[in-house]
Amino acid sequence: MRRLFFFMPLAVFAVLAVYFALGLGMDPKIIPSALIDKPVPQFTLPPIDGGAKQGFSDAELKGRVSVINVFASWCIPCKAEHPLITRLAGMGVATVYGLNYKDEAADALKWLTNLGDPYHRIGADRDGRVGIDWGVYGVPETFVVDAQGRIHHKHVGPLTQKSLEGELLPIIRTLSQ
């Protein structure tokens, strides 16, 4: 019994080491969304000024699984994830909406012309108010919403092939069943 006592510090260290090792793999910048499993907030977004695509509102997000991608032309990681958004939209598994966050209309349109426009509809959130209702704190962010208009998943930061195939697509598949 006494001897076991001497191993206490080692045991405490081992427990701490496990916690710290797990902590190393976590990104403190990623904050869990408060909106998971909640219905999407009410909003109506106008189209980008001078753009060809319509804007959208929460009503459109019902009836089919949808993906809402928050992007801006001033956001460099958005450019990095753009091919993956295009790929996701091309797969046709979910309707992909764009939420153009605090952007100048001309810049946004130029960005879409240069890189391609994968979105079904694009809403312009000029003052970022709708973004705040969605709990957006960094661009890009990507939400998965089910056919009932409930938010199921939020990805913060640029999508990667790994997060698209490992996170988003499985969730979309489950929701589509």
């Binding site: 904050i31 869990p32 969304s33 408060a34 909106l35 907030p41 705040i132 209702d133 969605w134 709990g135």
Partner: peptide, 8 residues
């Protein structure tokens, strides 16, 4: 604010 961003 908490409704949108959580207790964090």
């Amino acid at each position: 604010v908490v409704d949108r961003y959580g207790d964090f």
